[in-house]
């Protein structure tokens, strides 16, 4: 496994001088209207003259583009199937110029993976140009308010703080630091008195737990149902829907949680770190949340206290 920020898809960015350029735009905080497709968060962005939908996906390391529409971009590197990001065959790395998020945030140059995203399109029935991964926001903070369908993009001061006048909420109910490894956000949580590491993934439409977590946790789950699902590529796999009472994140107890239990080994491989679980929609829909990528801080203001 290579270190993040230096190598992407086997290419040494420093030697090629090809890293992402810094975002720019005349703002302190941007209010960007978002859309929803099922439990996914959709933000419109523009590449050259092409405007379309992108999934805000903190489970993706950087910009990922749908091969259906970007197959002809010049390749800077071909990736093996199941390579660094575990993507499907035919995935390659490209450089995108003139990328704009909403009207006011611009990037001159972004590294992107081009891969098959038809699975999301077909399941959500909307046109998806790509995924906005974490590195797009690496020097910023974002706040998402699902009740108002708004994304706030904050510029940070020298200390990496959101300007106090531009904060969306003052007193967070949840405040916790996170680890940022391989461009993935890992948040420590607690289930059944066991401490586990969750990846925080806005692209996950539900919380997830790995089969292999502590037996004590598995035993505490109340099974809702079990299914075999046929995935992209035609292979079938098992998922179990379950319920558990208490999830503690940053000292705040989240009551009555739904979780999908499956084998997350392959997802862990794609992250580059084994993952016990994933915090998805069931978690982040509980409140307005802010991710500060500079300070590596997660905050949430809960909509309805239980």
């Amino acid at each position: 496994m290579c270190k993040s920020g230096i190598m992407i898809g086997g290419i040494n960015l420093k030697t090629l001088e090809l890293g992402d350029s810094d975002p720019y735009g005349d703002f302190k905080v941007l209010t960007v209207p978002i859309k929803r497709a099922g439990n996914l968060i959709i933000v419109e962005a523009q590449i050259d003259s092409l405007v379309g939908n992108f999934v805000l996906d903190t489970g993706a390391p950087y910009l990922v583009l749908n091969a259906t529409y970007f197959r002809d971009l010049p390749k800077i590197n071909e990736q093996d199937a199941g390579g660094i990001n575990g993507r499907t065959g035919g995935t390659f790395t490209a450089v995108v110029h003139n990328f704009s998020l909403g009207f006011d945030l611009h990037y001159d140059r972004l590294i992107a993976d081009v891969t098959d995203l038809s699975g999301i399109e077909n399941s959500k029935k909307i046109k998806i140009l790509g995924l906005l991964g974490t590195r797009v926001f690496a020097k910023l903070a974002i706040t998402i308010d699902l009740s108002k369908n708004l994304l706030y993009i904050h510029k940070l001061d020298k200390q990496g703080e959101i300007l106090s006048a531009e904060r969306v909420f003052d007193k967070p109910d949840v405040k916790t630091t996170f680890k940022y490894m391989n461009d993935v956000i890992f948040i420590k949580g607690n289930v059944s008195d066991k401490s586990i590491w969750f990846a925080f993934d806005t692209g996950a439409e539900t919380n997830m737990l790995d089969f292999h977590v502590s037996k004590k946790i598995i035993k505490s789950l109340q099974v809702i149902n079990r299914n075999n699902v046929v995935g992209v590529g035609g292979t079938s796999y098992e998922i179990i829907y379950a319920h558990f009472d208490k999830l503690i994140i940053g000292d705040y107890p989240f009551i009555s949680n739904r979780v999908l239990v499956s084998n997350l080994e392959n997802i862990g491989k794609a992250y580059g770190y084994t993952v016990d679980g994933i915090l998805g929609y069931d978690f982040f829909a509980r409140g307005i949340f802010t991710i500060n990528f500079a300070k590596k801080e997660f905050e949430m203001y809960i909509y309805n206290h239980q």
Binding site: G38, N39, L40, V55, D57, G59, A60, G82, G86, R87, G119, I120, S123, K124, L131, A199, D201, G203, A204, E205, T206, M208, N228, V229, V230, G231, V232, G233, T235, S236, Y237, E238, I239, L260, S262, N263, L264, E265, N266, I267, K269, A270, I278, G280, Y281
Partner: peptide, 17 residues
């Protein structure tokens, strides 16, 4: 049963929802 070959959470969950 059935190794889950879905390599990203969005593939796993969008397949369910």
């Amino acid at each position: 049963t059935g190794q889950n070959t879905q390599i990203t959470p969005y593939l796993l969950s969008s397949n369910v929802y």
